[in-house]
Nucleic acid binder design. Sequence first.
DNA 1: TATTGTTATACTCTATAACTATA
DNA 2: TATAGTTATAGAGTATAACAATA
Lengths: 175, 175
Amino acid sequence: MSDIDPCDLPADRQRGSNFGWSLGMVLRRWHEYVEEALKGLPHGSRGYHILAVVVHEDVPTQAALASRLVIDRSVLTYVIDDLENAGLIERQLDPRDRRARRIVATERGRQALADAEKRVAHAEDHVLAGLSEEQRATFRDSANRAAEAIHAAAPGTDPCAAVTSVIGPTEQVPG
Amino acid sequence: MSDIDPCDLPADRQRGSNFGWSLGMVLRRWHEYVEEALKGLPHGSRGYHILAVVVHEDVPTQAALASRLVIDRSVLTYVIDDLENAGLIERQLDPRDRRARRIVATERGRQALADAEKRVAHAEDHVLAGLSEEQRATFRDSANRAAEAIHAAAPGTDPCAAVTSVIGPTEQVPG
DNA sequence: TATTGTTATACTCTATAACTATA
DNA sequence: TATAGTTATAGAGTATAACAATA
């Protein structure tokens, strides 16, 4: 905790990881391809994620939806505005809690999602063109698993406090 | 090319991919952890990526460095400014082309990088805590492979034109 | 007093373009 | 004219906080 852990890294990690850079590259390209593929869907990939959860999962309120997707509720407001204006979802009032809004997809929204899912699947295969089909499947699966673990570990918590105890607040620039 | 490809998706992809969301989750957490771990290094993870390439690879000019990392040269300018002010790198003049600047690491810069690499490796293991050690290694490797393929396929090209021909400019919102 | 959802504001990144000095 | 590097500006995306209605 006080010093830098002199743990032995495997040889291929001695010379520095570019994992973060690689992830950024892949995500950037994913974004470019998917935004292009989802033109016409309000807020593109963000609207897609929201619509997918609304259709495939049963989320009671807007707040729960925001928590599920780890986005701010103030963002959710205007994305939902535009999805609703496009006729893809509806805000339903909860008679038991008049503050809450339940978001449900319209038939048109379900169709739009089905179409979007095909497009996204195609785009993703092109983004991961450097991998074999089997590697793509494994990569997808690992990404989902890692993300769910992150989400489950700290659903809305600030991770900085935790990591400080692991990494340690030592000098950064020697000299 | 004209219609939506009715290709058969595997069963686990019928109900929609959350791959992009997952990648975003992982990258966000990576960023949080690594920025925390690299406090004191100018520009955090971005300075780290640049320093790593400067130390481990032989890049002749700033422009080549920007191309290698796929960042804008105008961004490179001020990051390099701060890395240089911290004494981690130097701008060397090329006697054969007085416009060009060759970026080289100082001894202090190499030490800072070695320290940063240990911290980043630790942080990454925590980010991927949901995966086994073997899965982490595979995931890293796939990310690097996919990113290099993306970089090699279009080093500086706009991918939108290409994807349009693949996805097709069909209707997005049915009705 | 706490929570749901909305609105308004500020801040950070990034992309873009203008500028200089060389070639 | 084209390129290397620098500087300045505008836009998008995000985070934050204040607000009204309800619990």
